[in-house]
Design a protein around this nucleic acid. Structure first.
Lengths: 282, 282
DNA sequence: CAGTGGTCTAGACCACTGG
DNA sequence: CAGTGGTCTAGACCACTGC
């Protein structure tokens, strides 16, 4: 899991060849093959920095570096992969752009984590209407249910499981400043979250995704949301302390780990009387 | 508007000084002053590529290059600003990341435009539930109203105007596959859109933001949205052909030109029976 | 002060597009 | 085939952090 050697393919002929490569001379980076263009529009080659990016992602996925850890310096990585610092830099740049790594000048490059994040809820786009960012009231959380069930067709599809596979199902309410605001139903693949109980969740201080990281080694990296407007059913309305005539946002989220593997599906109902879902478009 | 000369400040001492600068030796790029750190955490200097980025933005804002135009090649710009190609490249990279410029390998770098965009509606995140991207039914548009009024407090605030300044107010309905889906109220600052009429809008084929570009030279660059769930009032319900008990998404958008200048405020009501607002989180 | 990421350069070569 | 953006390198120096 340590020494990986590879070679640039671009100018390899005159560059590294004469030098004895460190520990083994097998190329661990895919050679840039001039693949005959298939009918589809596949990219015909992969730049070095993309391959480095993939290797870094592999190391992250395999747990070589844990969330919050420093990764080796650019120079060290350049040495390890036998490329220039600039090439490593471009790979890291992209990962930093995806919020997978975090650069800190003068210190090092770190694996992003949902723990100890300046912004506690990275994926929560709900904001108070009064843009009063100064007083970010920490949420009160209430776990309503935590049970093991079989995946419905919808949940199975979202999680990439087959129907009736084991899933954990949570239900919780978040209240801000004493006002119940979010009701969430959360489904998790059973095989990755074995041993999760309402008690353990209750005991944990901090964001749920931080808990998933530390307790199950599951790091959420990105997510997709589908938003609709709904009227809550009577049970939902009761939990949110509203009437069934009060419209709410339905926010269905699929969250992914490395490798685009879905690891969570949730439906949130957001009460938007004093809040809104905020989005930036570019 | 043409020859701009400047100098790198980083290694200027030994580098360019002995050479006679092209046409004039005034630095048009701000020197990197080691400003005494103010109490606030202001950046103490600005990298060259950031300054280049600002200069490019200025040229865009002043209309030196119009939407759809090619801008000069990286080499030409490097020559113009007296920096290396890599520095220009980094500036352009950022602008391309903001969807302000578009790079096309082998061809050149272009000013982004809402016209002739592969994706017609860049800011519209509403998708059919059946992810049936193949059949993207073009919307039927109906202009309901187009009148000149005074800015309400809310609209004035969003557009950075003072209350009661002139604004244009549009109302329209978009229908997909014959189903009325979106009702939008749109407010525009009167001074920038003088002469806009329902007829001109109706005659124009293509996205509204493309119309704004070609008819008024207003290029929307980014936007913010605030989403809530609402019940429509009777008038709104009638226009959307739904009952007042059907919840809808309220999407309030402020759109900006260059310089973070707000140029449009709109409230859209989205019927989400067969559609959803889609968002990607990183 | 050593070590990290951040900026900048100059030059080489590659991949792609269009005439 | 010329011209554009895209990749890669090697080396220099700067800004920031922590010890």
């Amino acid at each position: 899991m340590s020494a990986q050697i590879k070679s640039s393919t671009q100018t390899i002929d005159e560059k590294i060849q004469p030098i004895e490569l460190k520990s083994n001379s097998k190329y661990s980076l895919q050679a840039r093959i001039e693949a005959p263009k298939t009918s589809a529009n596949l990219p015909s080659f992969s730049p070095l920095y993309q391959q480095i990016k993939e290797l870094l992602l592999q190391s992250l996925q395999l747990g070589e570096w844990q969330p919050g850890d420093v990764i080796p310096s650019e120079m060290d990585l350049a040495e390890r992969f036998q490329v220039s610092q600039g090439t490593v830099r471009k790979a890291i740049d992209e990962l930093a752009g995806d919020n997978i790594l975090i650069r800190r000048q003068g210190v090092g490059t770190f694996v992003a984590t949902h723990l100890e994040e300046r912004v506690q809820y990275r994926f929560l786009k709900l904001m108070p209407d009064s843009e009063d960012l100064s007083t970010k009231p920490s949420a009160e959380r209430r776990i309503i249910a935590c049970k093991q069930t079989c995946a419905s067709a919808e949940v199975a599809k979202a999680l990439g499981l087959t129907k009736d596979e084991d899933v954990l199902c949570l239900r919780r309410v978040l209240a801000f400043s004493g006002i119940a605001t979010i009701l969430e139903d959360i489904w998790l693949p059973g095989h990755s979250f074995a041993g999760l109980t309402a008690e353990r969740l209750r005991d944990y201080q901090g964001p749920m995704y931080a808990f998933f990281e530390s307790a199950f080694g599951v790091k959420m990296v990105k997510a997709q949301e589908r938003i609709k407007a709904l009227l809550p059913d009577p049970v939902q309305a009761k939990l949110l302390e509203i009437s069934t005539n009060t419209p709410v946002l339905s926010v269905e989220r699929t969250a992914f780990t490395y490798n685009n593997t879905p690891m969570e599906f949730r439906q949130g109902l957001y009460l938007t009387a004093d809040c809104h879902y905020r989005n930036e478009l570019n």
